[in-house]
Simulated assay, not measured.
Amino acid sequence: MTDSARLVIATRRSELALWQANHVAALLRELHDGLEVELLPLVTQGDRVLDRPLAQIGGKGLFLKELETALLDGRADLAVHSMKDVPVVETEGLPVDTVLQRANPFDGLLGRTADRLAGLASGARVGTSSLRRQCQLRALRPDLEIADLRGNINTRIGRLDAGDYDAIVLACAGLERLGLQQRVTEVLAAPDWLPAPTQGTIGVQRRADDGSAARLLAPLQHPETAAVTRVERTIARRLEGSCQVPLAVFARFEGDHLAVDALVGSPDGRRVLRCTASGAPSDADRVASEVAGDLLDQGAREIISALSESAAH
């Protein structure tokens, strides 16, 4: 930063991304008297290509490239992301090392013809492009038709309301941030249904050599969220987590213990591997390693390899 009294935040242009960036901006202004914060809204490749699943066009990193370019060329000082969109191998020199307190981590079913997943008629059409959600839907209800659905939250809800789908699945956190939580007809919660790693968490990215930005961001860091974020991303990294692998991880503190549930499955839902582990917070790295190792021992390596081969062709 050349001017510590002014910050520019790069953000995607979607309504949810702008809400998140404005939220971070408001917190920074409140914490630092006289600090000017402005947004730099950008359109990413992930926003442009909406006719194909993310797994086919390069993955979640497509939501970051343009924002990272703005950081590198000095147009922006910070970038705000949904942590679940941040690849587990971060871009060198651009750490995402500040995370806000986690919001609702779970998915929500938005039902049109039935309020609950169990109540949907056989053959009902459910919209989602997430392989993780597709895997769990097919494992629980193999009789449903799972159809691709991309676009921003309002676009997806609009297609539900237009009758294109009997139900759709979206992240509760995004709906709550936009005041749309009343559209959720059923919360799909652990342990029966697991979220994406770090779902519900906002992360802030900066240049590694920008000490001024690091100091301004320091009060935003939420230690408990940072701890579970590290665990979930460690497991995802060990399992080569990307949108090409149906992977779900949920870590949380239960009293004085860290508890973790995770799964890896095949997109058709016919094979779902699960692991549960717990330990003291000081053993977080061991717990993460234990979960990833157990899933690999159960056969996750074969699932991941098969999906990688399929993607290559």
Rank of each mutant, 00 (worst) to 15 (best):
R29S: 09
R125H: 00
L62N: 00
P53I: 06
D261S: 12
T198H: 13
C172W: 07
T98F: 03
D164Y: 06
P281A: 08
L239C: 07
L194R: 11
D73F: 01
R133W: 09
V89P: 07
A124K: 01
G123L: 04
S14G: 06
R52C: 11
R75G: 05
R237S: 01
A259G: 09
G59N: 00
R112S: 12
A280I: 12
D143H: 14
A306Y: 15
D294L: 11
S242A: 01
R138P: 02
L54K: 02
G293D: 06
I202T: 15
V184W: 07
L263N: 02
T276A: 08
L54M: 04
D210P: 00
T155Y: 15
A248Q: 14
S289T: 14
D294N: 12
G108A: 11
T113E: 12
T91Q: 11
D33H: 06
A236G: 14
S242I: 00
E302T: 11
D77F: 03
L40G: 03
A17K: 10
M1N: 01
H257T: 04
L71E: 07
L194A: 08
A190K: 03
H23W: 05
G158W: 05
L188S: 01
I303L: 10
S289A: 15
V88T: 06
R274F: 10
A5S: 14
T234V: 05
T229Q: 10
Q20F: 02
K84C: 15
L35Y: 02
T155L: 10
P53F: 07
K65C: 09
A214L: 00
D33P: 04
V184E: 12
G111N: 11
D115Q: 13
S282M: 12
Q45A: 15
S212A: 11
W193R: 01
E66Y: 03
L18H: 10
G179Y: 12
G255N: 14
L16Q: 13
E15H: 07
A173P: 04
T198W: 15
R271L: 13
I57H: 11
T11F: 05
Q244F: 13
R159Q: 11
E309D: 10
S310N: 15
D51P: 07
L295W: 00
Q205C: 11
R138A: 01
E224I: 08
G123K: 08
I57A: 11
P195M: 10
H222L: 14
L72F: 14
I9K: 10
L78A: 06
A17G: 13
P87E: 09
G293S: 02
I157Q: 10
L216I: 04
T98H: 03
G108Y: 09
V99N: 04
R48Q: 12
P95D: 15
A218N: 01
G293A: 00
D285I: 07
P267H: 08
A251H: 00
V204R: 04
P195F: 09
F106A: 04
R271P: 13
E176I: 09
R29P: 04
A139H: 02
I153S: 05
E145T: 09
E30T: 09
P105L: 03
Q181S: 15
R102E: 11
T113C: 09
D73N: 06
P105I: 02
L64F: 13
I146W: 05
A147I: 06
